[in-house]
Structure formats: C-alpha cells, structure tokens
C-alpha cells in the first residue's frame, strides 16, 4: 500500500535529495534519506526519485519493498524495538513482545492510531551480553523484564 501525504512538502524533499548525485546506484541512499526525514516513504517522494534517477517507478518500489529499513507506511513518533537476536530470544524476548503488544494495544509491526507509538522488532543489535534488549527511539535498555518494559512506557 502506498500512502499519499496531504501536506507533502516538496521543497523539503529537494533539500534532502539535492546533495545526492542523481545516478541509479544512489537509489538506496536516496530512499534512506527520505525515510530519515519523513519516517516512511511517501508516494510523491518515490515518484520524484524515479524522475531524478531516470529509472522506472517499479524499480523504486521494488527496492523500497525489499529492504527492512524502508517503510511504505508511516511509523510511530516513538518507536519501541525489541531485539529478537538469539541471545535475546533465549532470555525471553517473545514475552517482552507480548507484554508490549498488550500495553500499547498494537501488534508487532504496527503503529498506534494516533501515530504516537510504534512497535517493531530487529534481528540483532549486537548488544547480546545485555539480553534481552529493548530500544526506545534508539536508546538501548538492557536486561529487560516485563515489569521494566511497562516502566518504559
């Protein structure tokens, strides 16, 4: 599903894309820059990228759809990420996901209706000694328990 943004700011898009050289190899860097600014890929921005790089829109969509770091739907303002690495799994990541889903009222991969909170998982953050790990907007919290998770919220 592609999402149009009603108040889409094309000027801001120029600011993001202008410093990146318009060559097809820069497709992923461009999409990453857009994701960094809007927290997802608005349809208009993807069309603009296709125009700049002179490549089919389908290719932009294919790449956007392939990589996990890119999202076609808006993400929450505050994102809870549960690490699902092996060490975290062994030390109880699945139950952390369950308690976060319950507390936030959304399921994994979703964003709350008001756009405030999002719940995601990541394969491994490389902080295995601290397992299980939850990050809130990138800030890492280690040795989490169901109780500590509810304090985070």
């Amino acid at each position: 599903m592609l999402v149009n943004t009603p108040d889409f700011d094309k000027l801001a898009l120029g600011e993001i894309l202008d410093p990146i050289e318009s060559q097809p190899a820069n497709l992923l860097p461009m999409l990453q820059a857009i994701e960094g600014r809007y927290r997802y890929l608005p349809k208009e921005a993807m069309v603009e990228v296709a125009l700049r790089l002179k490549i089919p829109k389908s290719r932009v969509f294919a790449v956007a759809n392939f990589y996990k770091a890119l999202s076609l739907t808006p993400k929450g303002e505050r994102i809870f990420t549960v690490c699902q690495g092996t060490a975290c799994h062994l030390r109880g990541a699945p139950s952390l996901i369950a308690s976060l889903e319950k507390a936030l009222g959304i399921s994994l991969g979703q964003c709350s209706k008001d756009g405030r909170n999002g719940l995601e998982s990541v394969n491994c953050l490389g902080a295995c000694a601290m397992a299980p790990v939850v990050t809130v907007d990138g800030e890492v919290h280690g040795a989490m328990t169901a109780k500590k998770v509810s304090e985070l919220i």
């Binding site: 497709l27 992923l28 990453q32 290719r59 790449v63 392939f66 990589y67 996990k68 890119l70 394969n123």
Partner: peptide, 25 residues
C-alpha cells in the same frame, strides 16, 4: 562507506554487490 538497507541476505557476496549497485539485494 555504504549503509545497508536492513536485509540479512546482503551479507551474501553477490547480493551485497547488487545492493551497492542500487538494486534489491
């Protein structure tokens, strides 16, 4: 430096190269 897109398969050599070229890995 090239920043990946969050795909495990890009650790495979030919997928990694496809990703640098700006395609799906």
């Amino acid at each position: 430096v090239i920043e990946g897109g969050g795909a495990f398969v890009c650790g495979e050599s030919t997928a990694l190269m496809a990703s640098i070229e700006g395609r799906e890995g």
